[in-house]
Amino acid sequence: MAHDAHHAEGHAHAHWDTSIYPFIISFGILFLAVAFSFKFVYHNGFAAILAMGLGIPMIIAGIAGWTSEAMGKGEGLSYGAMGWFILAEAMIFVSFFVSYWYTKLHVDVWPPAGNVELPRTMPLVMTFILVASSLTIHYAEHLLHLGNKAGFRTWYLLTIVLGACFLGMSVYEWSHLIHSGFTISTNAFSTVFFSVTGLHGSHVVVGLAIFLAGLPSVMRGDIDEGFMRTAGLYWHFVDIIWFFVVSQVYYW
């Protein structure tokens, strides 16, 4: 994928490959970090918006440019790389869970004062939906492997819909809890509850974003099987993590 920059020039080997997008994304992230400081440290909302206004478009433009520049030119290594990346991601969840257990086991009274009754059925429904979406993407990949592009598209879209349903239910639950006075700063449990479900939710968002990034090519029909397998792998990971989330924060 590095050898695509030279067709503009006649003499191919005098030029070195370049890509402007990594640079743009990095500095976009810099603006986001600065925006956080403006908002929460210096309480300057206007400057924060300004920095976000620079950062977010830079990141989006960077990602869009990157995908269009590189999509389909992968060397089939992204599946293996995703495995390593998932290892790193899993460690984030591990550190959340371990600090949760550490805190919980050390104090005398648990949960701390201020807790509310968490819903019991909603998480089961959410589990069902997420597992279903894992199965649909798996089936979609299977169809793609057999060469059935139309079938792939159907099940792919279904996966996206299921993922979106899951996200919607999360949002509904959060707003419900927040309205009943249970917020992230109520106590140590609420902190864990919101940060762990939020962290997981953000992974759902990333998973969906990957699917959406692949959507144009799916609609066009020039589907990159390696990309889809990698996206599917990530989605399975998000699903598996959910089992830990649901068992640890809702039922334990």
């Binding site: 600090s99 104090v107 992230i184 140590a188």
Partner: peptide, 22 residues
Amino acid sequence: KYLGTNFFDPTKGGDVLTYQNL
């Protein structure tokens, strides 16, 4: 510090040492 969580605040059930371990 900025978003009001209580990971390390003992008065709300958090634990200071968690950070050092992580």
